[in-house]
Amino acid sequence: MEVTYKVHRKDPENGGESSYSTYQVELPEDATVLDGLQKIRDEQDDTLAFRASCCQGSCGECAVRINYKAQFTCTTRIGDVTKKAPEILLDPVRNIPVIKDLVFDMDRFTWNKMAAMKPWMEPDDEFAPTENLVPESEMADVRKTMSCHACSLCDEGCAVLPVNFDFLGPAAMVKGYRFVMDPRETGAKMEARMKVVEQPQGLWDCVHCYEADGKCPRGLTPSSKIMEIRDVAFKEGIKHEKVGRHHASFINSVKQTGWLDERKLVMETEGMTNVTGLMKLLPTAVRALRRGKMPGRHEKRPGADQIKRILEKAEDSK
């Protein structure tokens, strides 16, 4: 069948403007999008730049956006694309600077962000003669997580990265999760690991919008994993100072009255002795006051004592 490819182009040696090239390619029905790209480069335009390696959906190298959906070219069949749209539109993955055509900057992106997780173990007993004894039940989840391709398709869906390029993103957090949940890292190693995971631009910069959960080609649910790391952070004690104050105030407020005291939360989060931080809040507070939006007196709710009892018991069960 004849297929139309419309491919994003960018030539860093000629101004670097984005444009599109259109190609007509004759392909068998069950060909993949990658087959077509290779054919174009071979027969029509050898300036076309795109990455590929394993050609069987196992390495993560060929991620691009195919008709606006980020996927692997090597596992996407042209028929599945063309039955929904007249042409195959190929763009680089979002949120990542493009170098040339469909080749984007993995160094500045995924590789650097993952490296920021200090993604390695430094066991004290590295050269012990026998392996760690670990129940299979504790290893299975870590192993599944480690099947991550590092393909950056989860980062592609991230809501934070478009406004904050420095956010480490879901792929790096999945890497963090793999260590946080590894039964072989405990004690001081765990403590140090949580500090790394909670670094600025890390765990607490995620908006938990759950966008990433649906994006992983391995079904790894990165967003849910971030929430699981958060649960661990609560247990271990939050290392991020401001977030720690915020969450402590939040929980305290619900404990005392059954519900959230927004005004107190805002001030306690800044830190009651942090004058600059508190001053920054002033204009918003004044605007709110003028509009009658300032929360009123915060009354203790009926049932608050039961709620407090439950929360305290749950905290003790750590």
């Binding site: 609560f234 939040f250 049932g303 749950a314």
Partner: peptide
């Protein structure tokens, strides 16, 4: 007479019971 949901600012260990 019921509690705040936790709004994602509590671990599930605390918010699930309330």
């Amino acid at each position: 007479d019921v509690a705040c949901t936790g709004a994602g600012c509590m671990p599930t260990q605390l918010s699930d019971p309330i």
